[in-house]
Design a protein around this nucleic acid. Sequence first.
DNA 1: GTAGGGTTAG
Length: 485
Amino acid sequence: MVIRIQKPPAHINHFLHHPFTTISTPPPQDPTTLATQILNSTSKTLPQILESQSPSIQWTPQLVNKTLKTLWNHGPKALQFFTNLLRHPHFTPHASSFDHAIDIASRLRDYKTTWSLVSRMRSLRLGPTPKTFAIITERYAASGKPDRAIRVFLNMHEQGCRQDLNSFNSLLDVLCKEKRVEKAYGLFKMLRGRFKPDVVSYNIIASGWCLIKRTNKALEVLKEMVERGISPNLRTYNIMLNGYVRAGQIKEAWEFFMEMKKRKCEIDVVTYTTIVHGFGVMGEIKRARKVFDEMIKEGVLPSVATYNAMIQVLCKKDSVENAILVFEEMVRKGYVPNSITYNLVIRGLCHEGEMERAMDFVERMKSDNCEPNVQTYNVVIRYFCDSGEIEKGLDVFEKMDREGCLPNLDTYNVLINAMFVRKKSDDLLVAGRMLIEMVDRGFMPRKFTFNRVLNGLLLTGNQEFAKEILRLQSRCGRLPRKLKL
DNA sequence: GTAGGGTTAG
């Protein structure tokens, strides 16, 4: 049974802390330890594990959410954990935990679970909230079902959640981020009478056009906005600026930036970061550095993101050594590098073949209380494998497991591909086991990957294992049409 | 999680 311990009133507190009172304080509730226990459990032992925690553990939303996040790359286990918790009569779920679980279920394309969580949420009067719908529509749009996303939005009021301008903007954003700006703009025009678009709506559509490098369309939309009496804001300008940079129109970007200055537009750290990044990707390191130095004189302090932009472009167009100088400079100035910063430097070092120094940075990351994430490990695994050091790649794979970092689809793809280079039959067995593991964790291998592993196993005389993989493939619906029963 | 800047592979 799960007991929620509530903070006692102050007068009771006195008795609780009396030396003769035997009520113990709850143990430290560490989501990582909990997640590890859950990962090592089976569907049978999981309820017992949760049960054994129950006398002391407080299932706060933070603990539940953090645990779900840690289990992100093992969706089925994450959902098992959450649905088991829901069975406990004394567990009081929070709307945000439902949203996390719904996010995980819809990422697995398990829409049955998704919607049953929604109705559970509803029966507990916790939602669904507009955020819940943003999650679900994003998942539909991301898996090639933008029309389904739109339908979900149009029907959300039936789930007790009224559409408003905010939720409309969310939907437009989701469609634009999935590069369905054409569709988003059509919907925008169709429903603008009903939702009265604002500057946010227009900014979303404009950045959608910019994302697919159609800066002229973005300008057109913004012109229409002004004609309708809505003024652009700083974000609007930053969106256009970034659009030019993305589209490689660096001349236009610079002119736009100059125009902003001339018109005494407020210019902020985002504007500068965009320019630094823009010059950098064009290989104009000196000009990037100049803008970087200039912004401080103009009274705009760089952010960690600005440093990240600078570090990235130095790695790509200059040298890692200079990038590391900037890294040390930011640390000296009291900035705290984040995981993106570390990953950039690590990637830069890997790219130069400096694998040992890259691994040193992974350690430094840890000692700086910035846990290496799945992207960090993916980078070093990829570079080890690409340089033929398969064994070291596998070592890092084991290391991340020990550190409690779950691999994602990229990790498996990189490693499975690497299992073919040495032409060793043992490697194919490893590939087969990885294939089984990734499916177990909710990742869908491509048909190509299945076939490659299958052929490899057959050619190395592992007929029995090949059959097992074939059965797995058919369960995944990844069989060639002819073989499907 | 209503909008803008840093991680990704050719």
